[in-house]
Design a protein around this nucleic acid. Structure first.
Lengths: 158, 158
DNA sequence: ATTTGTTGCTTGCACATACAAATATTGTTG
DNA sequence: CAACAATATTTGTATGTGCAAGCAACAAAT
């Protein structure tokens, strides 16, 4: 996300303050945060040729070989259709393979997939380091907990 | 970043507990929250035929006729290209119109656009009410502030 | 055992967003 | 002034995600 451009006429009170009426809106703020932090994630995970959802999904598959899409959907807070898409692409990249068993689908890592696991952990760490230093390591922990708790509350609604 | 692995396998102590190792990851949690809350937003704003980004953009245009894409980009934390796309669609719906002035583009609301303004405010309120009641009205305010602050910190990086 | 419903996964389609490159205007400097 | 750099916007293209509908396998009930 870019867009500096300062000047702006009637800036009130504090300089550098980019608060606006949307800052009080969680719908707005949560999306802004997600976009900003995903940019970091994509940068770091991109170095291993994945974006963060793929990386996390691959983690799950490596750590729980034979995991099903529905389990992944629950763990990753993504819809089943999204999981299908992610798995498809990981399969194309030869990082996982699917096995049909009845109406279930079991997902297993390939060797290449397993080999990527440490790199994912590293990238994961780098992402954490970057946003921690930007946001402030003290706040980050509590913020994360609260954000997750809120996400879960909303998700449990339906 | 701490990766606390929580129990695995079958449901742990508390029922409804969906914590996992990603709950400690802000990249993950922020996206989960954004998706969950956007679902609410789309539902409410959908009733007036917009999704939330369009609605907020239209607000800005109604409240600051002649606003430029770059200003909108700054206010809405979206890239200029995204603003162009949003404005295009609002123009198709006859809710705004564009005027070229040199290298700038000035965006004005149409009457239909202005007429929608109160409905947007209402939908906005309903969204707030819904997530407040889900998350807990006490937490929501502080959470929103922190989330916005974090988003701004990350955005100010580059 | 056939029907009916339920569960698990996949597909078709749509949408929000971004990046990189293209275009057009404005500013600057030799 | 001409050439070049900077700024503002748009366009081509790609990606992540979801909804609704489809399909396949299983379960339940008559």
């Amino acid at each position: 996300m870019r867009s500096e451009m300062i000047n702006e006429t009637e800036t009130p009170a504090v300089a550098g303050q980019k608060d606006n009426r949307y800052s009080a809106c969680l719908l707005f703020s949560a999306n802004a945060l997600a976009r900003a932090i995903t940019a970091i994630g994509d940068e770091e995970f991109g170095r291993i040729g994945l974006s963060y959802s793929y990386a996390y999904l691959l983690c799950e598959v490596v750590d729980q070989p034979g995991v099903t899409p529905s389990k992944l959907s629950e763990t990753l807070f993504l819809t089943p259709s999204t999981i299908t898409r992610l798995v498809e692409k990981l399969e194309l990249k030869q990082l996982v393979r699917r096995e049909s068993e009845g109406k279930k689908t079991l997902i297993y890592p390939t060797e290449a997939g397993e080999a990527l696991r440490p790199a994912i952990a590293e990238a994961w760490g780098r992402v954490g380091a970057r946003y921690s230093s930007a946001i402030g390591p003290d706040d980050v922990c509590q913020l994360t907990q609260q954000v997750f708790k809120a996400a879960r509350s909303l998700d449990d609604l339906d």
